[in-house]
């Protein structure tokens, strides 16, 4: 071990035990927000302090850690957290989804299907799905306790009334195990179906808000909707410019100030894997243009 000044994975054992208890409770009550004594971490709130604490509590020496930020392994945030655990826990790290045993994520679920030996840790900014309509925490807790979720549909109703369709594109509310309504953190709703009946354990940590919740493996996760406005995962209608994938979630990249843009996989590991396997996007060289020919 290269950092004797730190306890394994930074947090002391008492703290990790406290967090594990919260995690166990969260697994026992799928979708329920368990309060925990969130610690100060050596990074600012908003950088994933909740996810980092959960990861620290569950990490073992033989785990292989992957960290993604918006699907990417190579953003500052992802690299910092990966290095943090490499240094404080000495664990192996990877960018390959298939090799990882623990994946900490901000805002995405990997495209590659997860398996039973994997664990997905979400960084959560605001855990309470009812907050924007009912600011009183005492009241939202009571509503969860009594499963009074009419208000959640009020939000979806407002979307349709205003935009003609359910415009909520991320943090799209789900009902877990037919009981608790849960905020899946700001993942795009494209990823919602992946949470349903997922073989991997999913853990959610909100550091500033001091809440942990979980979806145990193979748990039913249903996105809320109306009969006449069913849930629809959203995706840009284009193939990935780099790997040609037509089933992955895409990021839009503006390439110039002439309206030029391209769409590429948000999951960098998935994209690279496809390219290595010989897939190529037809537009990889020429960026997609809003109006082809207008700049002839």
């Amino acid at each position: 071990m290269n950092a004797p000044a730190y306890n394994f994975a930074y947090l002391d054992e008492q703290t990790k035990r406290m967090i594990r208890r919260a995690i166990l409770k969260a697994i026992a009550i799928p979708g329920y927000q368990v309060p925990f004594a969130s610690r100060e971490m050596p990074m600012p709130y908003g950088w994933g302090t909740g996810g980092v604490q959960v990861t620290a509590a569950i990490l073992g020496p033989r785990d292989v850690l992957k960290v993604i930020d918006q699907g990417s392994d190579d953003t500052t945030n992802a690299i910092s957290i990966r290095k943090f655990f490499a240094k404080t826990a000495g664990v192996a790290t990877t960018t390959a989804t298939g090799e990882a045993t623990v994946i900490q994520t901000r805002h995405r679920i990997p495209e590659t299907a997860l398996n039973e030996n994997q664990l997905l840790v979400y960084q959560v900014p605001i855990p309470e799905p009812l907050r924007f309509l009912e600011p009183r925490e005492t009241e939202t807790r009571r509503m969860h306790a009594l499963a009074e979720y009419g208000l959640m549909h009020v939000k979806l109703y407002e979307d349709i009334a205003r935009f003609g369709h359910i415009a909520t594109a991320y943090a799209y509310p789900v009902k877990v195990n037919a009981r608790y309504v849960m905020d899946p953190s700001p993942t795009p709703k494209f990823d919602n179906p992946k949470m349903d009946n997922c073989p991997a354990l999913q853990l959610f940590g909100a550091g500033r808000e001091k809440r942990i919740y979980a979806i145990p493996p193979y748990t039913e996760v249903v996105s809320l909707d109306f009969e006449d406005h069913p849930f629809e995962p959203y995706r840009f209608n284009a193939p990935c410019a780099l790997c040609g994938a037509e089933d992955s979630y895409l990021d839009e990249i503006v390439t110039d100030d002439q309206g030029g843009r391209m769409f590429v996989c948000s999951d960098t590991d998935y994209c690279e894997g496809r390219q290595a396997a010989g897939h190529h996007g037809s537009l990889s060289a020429a960026p997609y243009r809003e109006k082809a020919g207008s700049h002839g």
């Binding site: 009419g150 549909h153 009020v154 009334a161």
Partner: peptide, 20 residues
């Protein structure tokens, strides 16, 4: 919240699930 949702809330609370 809009007037429509204010009136509709009780219906949604008792399980109405059809926007129209």
């Amino acid at each position: 919240v809009s007037a429509g949702a204010n009136v509709g809330e009780r219906l949604m609370a008792v399980g109405w699930n059809h926007y129209g």
